[in-house]
Design a protein around this nucleic acid. Structure first.
Lengths: 144, 144
DNA sequence: TATTATTAAATTGTACACAATTTAATTTTA
DNA sequence: TAAAATTAAATTGTGTACAATTTAATAATA
């Protein structure tokens, strides 16, 4: 390919549609997440908490691909809403243990319909969705 | 599917790997973009400028899926680096016309190798890359 | 044509996102 | 075991993102 003409066109990039698509879908979550007073990042954090109940910041960051610079203020906010509890591990005080609260557990029932509401606003066949899913994880795995 | 158990698991979301993958790839750009003193958003903006030479903020925003709240400060920064020129349209002063400068044009040659350097750090077959590309644009189109 | 509506950027405010540094705790090792 | 290295969060600083509002210019209309 002629390096000077095409490689730097937006339409020839793979990263750009990924970036744009991610943002646009996250934006579709907003009205539903507003109803339960969560941002998207807080929502995916709660998704982990609903599943594991308790986790430290490091492990949480690994699951979410986020670092403490993002998670520390976010977890403080979730704590102020009483959805999680933050406390240092007695065993190793470097670790901060995040634990879901009852109020956090209760929030789950309000969130359970959100994924289908969002996927309803974009038409994508089951097959393509599965293919997309597996390619994305393939990329994520290959980059680690 | 049992609503209360699986729909809210991170691993069952399509948006999450999209969000994570986008961020991780953008992060791979950083070391190369640092060398030419651009952020990723500035870089995709310059990609449009290399292609069209001149455009107003509204049209630029449409191409990049960004609004004036993001673009205004970003374009001011690109202007301060002398990569673009910002001036009101004489024909309609509501429009701000962004024009690439000579220095901006010259930057292209330094950026031309970046896409292949980034794609080198993730293994993805041509076929899968193409499939991914087309599904992403299908989603983007279906959401407009 | 004066008023109203619309449009395009800019501004404001909140929340990420992440690199780099700092702080404090724990391990390793000389 | 005391010093050095490592580790986990927190902090700092820069740069997005985007909703909502404001400002200024232009277009539509009563």
């Amino acid at each position: 390919m002629d390096k000077n003409s095409d490689t730097l066109k937006l339409e020839n990039q793979l990263c750009f549609p990924l970036y744009a698509c991610s943002k646009e879908i996250v934006r579709r979550y907003k009205p539903y997440l507003d109803e339960i007073d969560l941002t998207y990042t807080q929502y995916i954090t709660m998704m982990v908490m609903w599943e594991v109940k308790q986790i430290n910041v490091k492990e949480l960051g690994k699951k979410l691909f986020l670092d403490s610079g993002t998670l520390t203020p976010l977890l403080k906010k979730l704590e102020s809403k009483d959805y999680v509890k933050r406390e240092r591990s007695k065993h190793d005080e470097r670790n901060l243990i995040v634990t879901i609260t009852e109020k956090g557990e209760a929030l789950k029932s309000k969130a359970v319909d959100i994924p289908e509401k969002v996927s309803a606003c974009m038409t994508l066949s089951e097959d393509k969705a599965k293919a997309l899913y597996s390619v994305l994880y393939e990329i994520l795995d290959s980059m680690e």
